[in-house]
Design a protein around this nucleic acid. Sequence first.
DNA 1: CTGTTAGCGCTTTCAG
DNA 2: CTGAAAGCGCTAACAG
Lengths: 340, 340
Amino acid sequence: MADEKKLPTIKEIAKKLNISVSTVSRALHDHPSIGLRTKMRVQQLAKELNYEPNQIAIFFKQGKTYAIGVVLPSLIEEFFSKAISGVEDIARQNKYHVFIGQSHDDEEMEKEIVSAMKDQHVDGLIVSLSKQTKNYDHFLSLKKYNIPVVFFDRVPALPNVNKVSFNMINGTKQALEFLIEKGHRRIGVINGPEEMISTKERIEAYKQVMIKNRIKIDMSLIETTDLSTASTVTAIDKLLHLKRRPTAVVAINDYVALDGIRHAKKLKLKLNKDITFVSYANIPITSYLQDPPIASVEQYPYKQGTTAAKILIELMNLQGGENIFHDVVIDGDLVIHSHK
Amino acid sequence: MADEKKLPTIKEIAKKLNISVSTVSRALHDHPSIGLRTKMRVQQLAKELNYEPNQIAIFFKQGKTYAIGVVLPSLIEEFFSKAISGVEDIARQNKYHVFIGQSHDDEEMEKEIVSAMKDQHVDGLIVSLSKQTKNYDHFLSLKKYNIPVVFFDRVPALPNVNKVSFNMINGTKQALEFLIEKGHRRIGVINGPEEMISTKERIEAYKQVMIKNRIKIDMSLIETTDLSTASTVTAIDKLLHLKRRPTAVVAINDYVALDGIRHAKKLKLKLNKDITFVSYANIPITSYLQDPPIASVEQYPYKQGTTAAKILIELMNLQGGENIFHDVVIDGDLVIHSHK
DNA sequence: CTGTTAGCGCTTTCAG
DNA sequence: CTGAAAGCGCTAACAG
């Protein structure tokens, strides 16, 4: 079928009405200097022809796409999909569209995505770093293109970047205080990869709380995992085989906690008696779990998303010369699931 | 800082080298008819200046964006995020980028997203319908713009559309046969909203299997849920209070099954003894669950994604006149989690 | 092998 | 109030 008609353009409207394209353009935009009569005629005909402006042409002309890119490790983690919803909501309110790219925690992928987004001329970028990323050049070089970047959650260890980060220290302190209040004195930690800032922050918080509560700091209680089950099992196994076993463990996230819990059970430890788990929230269906952690630190992903988006939009609305960097910190809160 | 320099264009390269823009353009594209010497000079200078083609200009010029849009109900469901990974992988192989939009099962949102994507001039669309969507005009009208659409999983009840759908009948039959083989005779179904094709298909499968196994069909064993916990509880409660209670239930998805399981336990029924659950897979962490369904129908989201993407890419490569519609059906398989 | 030129659709000065 | 024309960056048909 000959449905291959070209889309109508202002040029055609102009021709049909025997007026100039500029008049049409202005009429379509309700420009004040256009006579009511012509304006009506134009808008009328535009409607009849189903005219719709060619956005690409407009982007091209204006050098702006009204699109923002979001780069993050994985959509499958609830934390990130909630964060995206936050970004989307703010974006929509401001007439921006959202591009999403998953790095799958691979630095190369991340570079590719950023480059693709730059090619698509997104007006700005919101990023949560891949676990692997050591080098930030692909982000820093965006300055050249006047594409502002706001990081969230997994932010780079750099000054002079815009970021929304989660205050691990605060949440971790709450978690530890909660455990101490329940009488725990030997508290283990399953921490994340060393590159992540949050890993250091947890240690920092740990030390502070222990000192405050006059508990001797024992670094052998702190293990790390690369987040894989195997690595987590190794870590928890070490902890549980210490001469003086911890009675509680703070795990870097729910999945890690679950792996830890499972392994503890395998070792015939009684949950919430021999060993108690607390973690950082990122699991959707805790309520259906057999042995969930008894408490977790809520990290407010939606809020992180909206906050990052608001900052980005502010930046995009700037001329682009300012050298002020936003550094927002979101506090966590301990959510207690069970008082067993 | 005066970092506000404009990006280099072929025009500048041309001027600096005292050659024409077309030569530059051709040299940059390794056009055969350009002298090696000039080609080198151009490419050399381009590198020095950090020249990068303005994609937007190219899109504009070529009327093609190399972007495909994906519209789906929610990213948070693992089913969809896996499907997206499938789409992304195929897209990347074919040099396409992926736009994602979440309808949150709202028809209005869906319309907005589609319209936004059309404005962004995506070259094609992959869609899984919102639960609410009754009217498909916003998709059908895309034909005018030569934007092909491929639906997957939640596909419209229309002829002449491209779709990748899941064969509910097949998977459901397997699930029912599995239960019958285990000796169940009264098998309940918690089905989905009536608008969804899959709902009808489950009933169809149910009837077929019952007839084949000479079991009397009892429609009171079939309840529906809108997928909310409340609605599911109502449904399962009805089933479990039937005069002759079912000994097994097939639930439309894992979440529904979990709600059902919980309610059954509340009613003091012994799981896998008084009542057995089977469902359709969509939960990430079944292995940590206390009482998972004993089997679920795998729906191969990744494969649905790749399949839809492949079809779309084929369609986009066509001139656009063909009236052949792709209708691929993916078969499910029952995955048995436990033999209790 | 290379240059000239038109043009994609739109906005926006600058002139009437 | 309206029109003419330039130009965004790039490609490609046409002409040498």
